[in-house]
Nucleic acid binder design. Sequence first.
DNA 1: GTCTATAGTTCGATAGAC
DNA 2: GTCTATCGAACTATAGAC
Lengths: 192, 192
Amino acid sequence: MSRRQQLLDIAGGLFAERGFKNTTVRDIADAAGILSGSLYHHFDSKESIVDELLSTFQRDLFATYDRILAEQPDTAGRIDAIVRASFDAIDQHHNEVAIFQNDAAYLMGFERFAYLREHNRRFRRMWVGLLAEGTASGALRADLDPELTYRFIRDTVWVAVRWYRPGADVAAQTVADQYLAILLQGIAAPKE
Amino acid sequence: MSRRQQLLDIAGGLFAERGFKNTTVRDIADAAGILSGSLYHHFDSKESIVDELLSTFQRDLFATYDRILAEQPDTAGRIDAIVRASFDAIDQHHNEVAIFQNDAAYLMGFERFAYLREHNRRFRRMWVGLLAEGTASGALRADLDPELTYRFIRDTVWVAVRWYRPGADVAAQTVADQYLAILLQGIAAPKE
DNA sequence: GTCTATAGTTCGATAGAC
DNA sequence: GTCTATCGAACTATAGAC
């Protein structure tokens, strides 16, 4: 792993744990065993570090979603796979998900991070589309507001990054199983 | 309203919007139309301000929960009323809920805010108890992990503070209706 | 209750030696 | 690629006048 990548990992861990604003460049340098000035040989600013972490993550995540939607033809399979891929992201890219959840609202205030808004737009469009598909086919109950249901699902999935710890006793896909069990029964059209 | 309470409201609004660490005492003073030094006539530190906001909120919230549990005898009525009271808190005490959601993890690092941990403990004990009641009576499905289900409900309810805006087009109790509709069907024992 | 003025820290970032 | 040394800005908080 390149020195640059090592430093990205170290910074990502600190940003995820304490937040972007609460992590100083001295904290990052200390954790890497160098002095703060040396960091600027690798990155031109603290913002550049978090930018590289978030933009890479956003690109990879939507590539995964696009692949799923291309492979899965039916709505139920799509919802299942998208939720599972999201929990997998919490497991495999924990730092980036945590930073996005905790600091994206703050970072979006800067022109440089305007691209993060595209993340939210795409995610919303995808889910509202999936819910519309399900309602049209009769698989999903029709008495729910699509916008509120989308927010319910979005928040439910991503907020798990607050307590889930990779490599702990509970596996990410076990959490996905349970969440899907509640969610799918909760939004399904009732059997008459 | 006392000057002290006015300043608490102004500070609460800024803390909720930008976060505790991202709000400076100058920001608060500017919003109040005074200079930053003058704030220290009313409070001895920035931490004291957020302390007063959070401790008051925590006390009132659990008084409400205790009243509900004393008045509602059956599990279904309790779950319904607790969720509705939580959405009401998001509506009526939006600043405090947002601060708790965004900054409690950071503030708990200080001895002074150790009492916030009691908030989490009591909330968990209450919900795990409610879920156990429901499972024992057969009203709730038995295949869900109580700990994961508790986290699912906790996160689902409180994270709504991120997008819900008091006084906007959607009323808090309308949101509660929809969330309860998904949640109650999702955790209910299936009709055979 | 607010102002003027400022102390004392900590922060992100830079310049140049090694 | 890291270190030494430091700048200038921003921050919380204080002291004393009005």
